[in-house]
Write a protein that binds this DNA or RNA. Structure first.
Lengths: 229, 229
DNA sequence: TGCAGGTGTGACGATATTGTCACGCGCCGG
DNA sequence: CCGGCGCGTGACAATATCGTCACACCTGCA
């Protein structure tokens, strides 16, 4: 079940849409004013937004652009509704950067189908791209690491190394295993590259670098919970 | 249901294992010769391999190393079976880079349990880290792109650009949208960086670069199906 | 305590990656 | 047909990143 936000001026349409969405097992919230969108999105993080471009108070296009500018709603899929006459021929809804768009009049069933399609596309990718382990939040999609919610700039190699270590936070990762997974070395090579990168990683992680534990004579291990020491 | 390949010399063990695996709803194929492994793996891409180190014809260790050396089987989880006496004390199965290992004698039930555990660990990450679209296979975990099954080396930026474009293969991605998602630019900046990277990306993709379509005056779009032109 | 092997660390050169710019071409409207 | 604008392209300099090395340090062991 997904949380869907419908922003439309016309209560008839909203109600009809909500009915069809409920039939598909989605939770649906309707707003009529563009300005109400932002507090709602921030608080409830909907999975998808259906946005009518014709809104009272604030232009729907402005609402859309503001949604895209905010990191909290940047990746939330948006389906745009519009009256055909409202759009110039040159600018289609998709060109605005929406995930899909529908021109009125449309069948509520079609909207529901398109919502399902967009959710299928986006949810699969988004849901698992972020992995949280203790103080660490690994964002695979953007190749970024957040440590205590603060972003940490990592090199590609550093990111892969950390990701590999974190992937299985119980197992000890052998030197040769890491060299294979991160560097792609297939045969055993004598190199200090791994040591150096572990060092650089620990540096960037600050005190949290202690979560990367050396297993003497074997390799390294990512430990969520540190020993008292 | 997962596809599991069991490589073991002893038919009794194989059969018992297969029985237990079937009970857990897994599809199971048994091979007795190490050399048969590679054509099978290439053709059927099993989700997990159970490998006995004691094999006729070819040493199990050699088979394992060759599996790890091939990009098509590099990330396929392997569980190693071994007689205790066979292994020196210093080198445990895990140190070889296996995902798990069991020493004989073992209960088939335990093997089935360990298989489930390994699958749980690896599949969640693997299954969704790879996104296939047409000729393109995007491997988020290893930050690699496969084009027609051939690996393509991409820069971090290039990868993110392509991933962003592919993420929604129907929508047109605005220039400002791409600059925001890939480069993190929040305000509109006049820059040719995007153009340059699109060019570099197209170059590396060869004829498949045509899948990145220019939308004049707006941005770019990833098209799975090309127009005849 | 002294030794030996494994690991941490800083520096360095080689290379990869990046953003910018200038120039030329093609598309589109007039 | 022509002019303007947006885009493709190649070159370039600045920077980031990488792997190696020498040396210091630390741990386990005798």
């Amino acid at each position: 079940m997904s949380k869907i936000l419908v922003v439309d001026d016309e209560p008839d349409i909203s109600e009809l849409v909500a009915l069809h969405l409920a039939r598909d097992g989605h939770e649906c919230v309707c707003l009529t004013n563009g300005l109400e969108v932002f507090p709602y999105v921030t608080a409830h993080q909907p999975d998808l937004i259906v946005l009518d471009l014709m809104l009272p108070g604030q232009d729907g296009l402005t609402v859309f652009k503001r949604l895209r500018a905010d990191s909290r709603s940047r990746t939330t899929p948006v389906i745009i509704l519009t009256a055909r006459a409202q759009m110039s021929d040159r600018i289609s809804g998709l060109e605005l950067g929406a995930d899909d768009y529908l021109t009125k009049p449309f069948s509520p069933r079609e909207l529901a189908l398109r919502i399902s399609a967009v959710l299928r596309r986006t949810q699969r990718v988004q849901a698992v791209s972020e992995v949280k382990t203790g103080r660490f939040l690994l964002d695979r999609k953007n190749m970024k690491l957040f440590l205590d919610d603060a972003p940490v700039d990592l090199t590609t190699t550093e990111f892969k190394l950390l990701a590999t270590l974190m992937e299985n936070d119980k197992a000890v990762h052998t030197r040769s295993e890491l060299l294979r997974e991160v560097w792609g070395y297939s045969d055993e090579v004598a190199t200090r590259t791994l040591d150096t990168h572990v060092k650089r990683l620990r540096e960037k992680l600050g005190d949290a670098g202690r979560h990367i534990v050396t297993i003497r004579g074997t390799g390294y291990q990512f430990c969520v919970t540190l020993p008292d020491s």
